[in-house]
């Protein structure tokens, strides 16, 4: 990550933090929602955007993180430990989800992740001792490093700090051999093998790391809602995350945050516009249509998402992606040399 990108990352985080802390509980909740969604989108961007492995199990992986962190913090552990636990179990489960990737590709692998999502949803409902079944696991607000997280405002700083750290970590990762291996695997597994890359190992690493970040995001989601419920981690959530990274820009550096902010805040914007115009009922009904249409429009006209649109507005701006992510997987183009701009 270049110094400029680091400055932008920290600057955006600080701005979000100020908004969340200054504008009351509802704003803080929205900031947390965007930060958590960005984390989840970042993890999926790693798996799909950088490594080219389609996964429909993101919602369930967040659930794994939420339930794990909830159980650990309800047992008295510090929230920081519980979040780490959520990440670790998320990684472990994600690795299991990714196992079929060893033998399956493309659509078949995607279906396998769909099955994993369904299985995990079912497990959330029946593993009563751990999940409290369909009633959901009520999570007592924890302390994180001794600071009580008993309000939406108190969660703003941890959410943003974790987001920035995850962002830095992924950016750093993409400058390593493993990160470059992801990109080559994404473009062509055959070429990757020809270059001596252990494709299975690379895929599994993507799932492990992506699953860890998803588990951490799920832990924060559990703390934000004070509840881990099967209804919150369904296929709908997985689809939302896929929408985030497509709209934001698959395989781009700022794409997950831009996409997360867009997907989380667009319903709010539609709601407020509808209220102002006195047609909120109608616009509410059109919300799902609006999302579906946006995804189709982006796929047709700008598969590189909002990141590319923004980069056209500012050629040397935030759309620049240093990790060789020249566009959606499958597009031709030379990977750029990683490094600062």
């Amino acid at each position: 990550m270049s110094a400029r990108q680091l400055a932008i990352t920290v600057g955006v985080a600080v701005l979000m933090g100020v908004l969340g802390l200054a504008l009351g509980r509802y704003a803080a909740y929205l900031v947390n929602a965007v930060a958590i969604a960005a984390l989840g989108a970042l993890s999926l961007n790693l798996i799909i955007g950088y490594c080219g492995q389609i996964s429909f199990a993101q919602g369930a992986l967040l659930g794994v993180g939420a339930y794990t962190a909830g159980n650990l913090s309800n047992a008295g552990l510090d929230g920081a430990v519980a979040i780490l636990g959520g990440g670790l179990l998320g990684a472990a489960v994600s690795a299991l989800v990714g196992l079929p990737a060893m033998r399956l590709r493309g659509l078949y692998f995607a279906i396998a992740t769909l099955a994993a999502q369904a299985i995990l949803e079912y497990l959330f409902k029946i593993l009563d001792p751990l999940t409290n079944g369909v009633s959901g696991l009520v999570i007592t607000p924890p302390t994180i490093l001794g600071f009580p997280m008993n309000s939406d405002q108190s969660l703003v700083v941890p959410s943003l700090v974790i987001l920035v750290l995850a962002w830095l970590a992924v950016s750093r990762l993409m400058r390593t051999d493993l990160g470059r291996a992801f990109l080559v695997v994404r473009e062509s597994e055959i070429v990757a093998k020809g270059m001596g890359i252990d494709v299975s190992h690379a895929k599994m690493q993507a799932f492990l790391i992506g699953g860890f970040i998803a588990g951490v995001a799920g832990a924060l989601a559990g703390y934000a809602n004070r509840l881990a419920s099967p209804e919150a981690f369904t296929l709908d959530l997985s689809a939302d995350y896929i929408a985030m990274i497509i709209i934001g820009g698959l395989g781009t550096w700022p794409g997950p945050l831009i996409g997360a902010a867009f997907v989380v805040l667009l319903p709010e914007a539609i709601q407020r516009v509808g209220e102002a115009a006195g047609i909120s009922d109608i616009l509410s009904a059109l919300r799902e249509l609006a999302f579906g249409l946006l995804i189709i429009l982006f796929l047709i006209f700008e598969p590189r998402g909002l990141t590319a649109l923004l980069s056209r507005l500012r050629p040397r701006g935030i759309g620049a992606a240093p990790h060789g992510s020249v566009g959606a997987p499958g597009e031709s183009g030379q990977p750029q040399e990683g490094g600062s701009r």
Partner: peptide
């Protein structure tokens, strides 16, 4: 009057 969409996270947000 707001639309909760029978989605838990939406309802929790609206409550706030």
């Amino acid at each position: 009057l707001l639309d909760g969409r029978y989605k838990l996270d939406e309802e929790l947000k609206i409550y706030r």
